[in-house]
Amino acid sequence: MKNLILKMADDALIIGHRNSEWTGIGPLLEEDIAFSSMSQDKIGHAWALYRILNEELGGEDPDKAAFNRSVKDFTCCHLVEYPIGEFDFSLVRHFLMDKAEFHRYDLLLQSSFLPLVNLAKKVKGEIKYHVMHADTWMQQLANGNEESKARIQSALNLVYPIAFSLFEKQDDEQAVIEQKVFVGEDVLKSIWVDDIANRIKEFGLTIPSSIDSSAHLGGRKGYHTDHLEPLLKEMTEVFAIDPNAEW
């Protein structure tokens, strides 16, 4: 169960970090604000998850867990690690990821582990707005002009296979399912695939036909893209100045 919570926390922390990079450089001020706001939510979710690990399961202090771990110990998926790129990339990633997050927390409402149920109740309400934001923009840009439609379709072609890294299983998944903590990644994946397919069709876009996600797996076991290490170095830069100090 620790692994499940840790990977959720790592995913939320890293995507929150990435989306916070839009603050100040968005395509319009309203989007700076929206991405900034969603990144605060995500970092808040990460904080809450590390706190559950710390308070309920004997894990480290949240600041230590997030800001003082080596890259190999992170279990985030590859999807969250990539740089923000242009708005099309960030939007499609946000659309694919938040749909998965929404369904994941929805499924966790049935968890046998009460702290996760309580968190899921709160988080689901927030992610509902992230999903609305993504849907609105996908709809607008997929139906904007020729350039925006082409950009969104090609971002989708690029990001969709990577998004399957969200559902990479961990070694102890069977135990998590048996203890009814979480129904498992396969269940989540199939709900997500159907939901995404429907929405994409509504937007007038197409899902890439042949998917090979194997190159994007490994994050859950500590094998990451080259983007994660520099990100962590940046994230922990101030701590490194005086590691024994409180900041």
């Binding site: 603050t23 700076d32 970092i43 808040g44 904080w47 830069e237």
Partner: peptide
């Protein structure tokens, strides 16, 4: 400095602060 803020508390406060400034611009 958002991505480099040390710790959850400082990080969340700084993102919210900078977001406010953009909101003031708007």
């Amino acid at each position: 400095w958002i991505t480099r803020s040390p710790g959850f508390k400082r990080k969340l406060a700084l993102i919210a602060k900078v977001q406010d400034e953009i909101g003031h611009g708007q």
